[in-house]
Amino acid sequence: MDEAMTAEEQAIKKNVLSRMKRIEGQVRGIQGMIESGKECQDILVQMRAVRSALQSANKLILKRYLIKCYAESMENGADPKDALEKFIGVVTGFIEG
């Protein structure tokens, strides 16, 4: 792992990668369910599980962003409002310009 990463950042990275591998397996499982003609209800339950897992991974990635990117912006003398607007743009997909 990157030596410049803090222990917390490394733990987040490891956790997210683990979750993404699990999600990948779940998605392959859903594909198999569809191919084999499983009931829609069963497929939708698995889809909900994937969506929930993605949301959990997203929260961890947001945490890492705040720890690393936002904090670094502040340490490098960025305008707090600009750094916050950039963060909001990343989270919402809405970037003024």
Rank of each mutant, 00 (worst) to 15 (best):
D82V: 09
A71E: 10
L54Y: 05
G32V: 02
V27S: 01
E24R: 01
E9G: 03
I30T: 00
S18V: 07
Q55V: 14
R19M: 12
E75M: 15
A4Q: 07
K13S: 08
F87D: 09
V91W: 01
I61K: 07
M74E: 15
N15R: 14
K86Y: 09
M33C: 06
G97A: 14
G37A: 00
L60C: 02
M1T: 08
K86E: 12
I88T: 05
S18F: 13
N58K: 13
A49H: 00
M47S: 12
N76T: 03
M74P: 00
E85V: 01
Q10G: 09
Y65N: 05
I67R: 11
R22F: 05
V50N: 04
M20T: 06
E39N: 10
A57I: 06
K21W: 04
S36W: 03
I23W: 02
G93D: 06
E8M: 12
G29V: 00
K14S: 10
A78T: 11
A7D: 14
V16F: 06
D79I: 05
I12V: 08
D2Q: 09
G93W: 09
L60D: 05
V16K: 11
K86H: 13
I34F: 14
E24W: 00
D82T: 09
G77A: 10
E9C: 10
A53F: 15
K21D: 05
F94H: 06
E35H: 02
A11W: 09
E75S: 14
V50E: 07
A7F: 06
D42P: 03
S52L: 04
E9V: 05
M1L: 08
I61H: 08
N15A: 09
L66G: 03
E75K: 15
